[in-house]
């Protein structure tokens, strides 16, 4: 479960404080899919980064399964991310010098992964329908295929929460639907919590619950 309480993040621009996230609070239950919709620059990505422990809030707290991630030191927070969280981005997030399989296995370089992680990575790549591309480099994959590999990578650590920032951006409608379906299946089968940031109503509408972000203020979209 994710509990975000009264979180604030500001930036100083030309001597003026800009509230990227302004006293946001919300809760996401385990296994829930929540979408956050809003225009570009509304603070969605910053909020996602605050939840994921990537940028420090000015105030407020983020509890992930009972752990206040901003009370952890940097090392512990990194380990926590490595074991419990995953990110999916809109941009090409694969390492160009690594094959699809190696990209999926990348998080294992930073944590205590035991067992046959390679077999799991192979199962994941098969799950996203790219078994034949296992040794392909990102430059030989289409945008949609790269996104699928990134999704497979997001599951290598069996996270309790996946934070997806515009995961279907730049993709055609068919691939977009494929990816959302994949999220829904993973959610059902592995009980993974999803927080999806998007500016597309259609994508947001497919989540169980929708939140709206506007000028740093988070509201219920319903």
């Amino acid at each position: 479960m994710i509990e975000v309480s009264d979180i604030v993040k500001s930036y100083m621009i030309d001597g003026q404080a800009l509230h990227a996230v302004n006293h946001a609070s919300f809760t996401v239950r385990k296994g829930e899919i929540v979408s956050i919709i809003g225009h570009s620059g509304s603070g969605k990505t910053t909020l996602l980064s605050l939840i994921g422990g990537l940028t420090r809030p000015d105030s407020g707290s983020v509890l992930c399964d009972g752990t206040d991630i901003w009370r952890l030191d940097d090392n512990s927070r990194s380990h926590f991310r490595n074991r419990n969280m995953s990110f999916i981005y809109q941009f090409a997030s694969l390492i160009p010098t690594l094959t699809a399989l190696e990209n999926i296995l990348l998080p294992t370089a930073f944590g205590d992964f035991s067992g046959d992680v390679r077999a799991y990575a192979e199962a994941l790549i098969e799950r996203v329908g790219l078994k034949e591309k296992i040794r392909a480099y990102p430059s030989h994959l289409s945008g949609g295929q790269q996104r699928r590999i990134a999704i497979a990578r997001a599951f290598i650590n069996r996270p309790s929460v996946v934070l997806a920032d515009e995961p279907t951006g730049d993709l055609d409608e068919e691939t977009e639907q494929d990816i959302i379906r994949l999220f829904q299946e993973m959610n059902r089968e592995l009980e993974t919590t999803f927080i999806i940031v998007t500016h597309t109503r259609e994508i947001a509408a497919q989540a169980a619950r929708q939140l709206r972000m506007s000028n740093g203020i988070l509201t219920d979209a319903a």
Binding site: L98, A109, F113, S114, D116, V117, R118
Partner: peptide, 14 residues
């Protein structure tokens, strides 16, 4: 995930 055949990515390889 317990298996003797574990093959992780290493920082050196990266």
């Amino acid at each position: 995930i317990i298996n003797k055949k574990m093959r992780k990515i290493r920082i050196f390889g990266l």
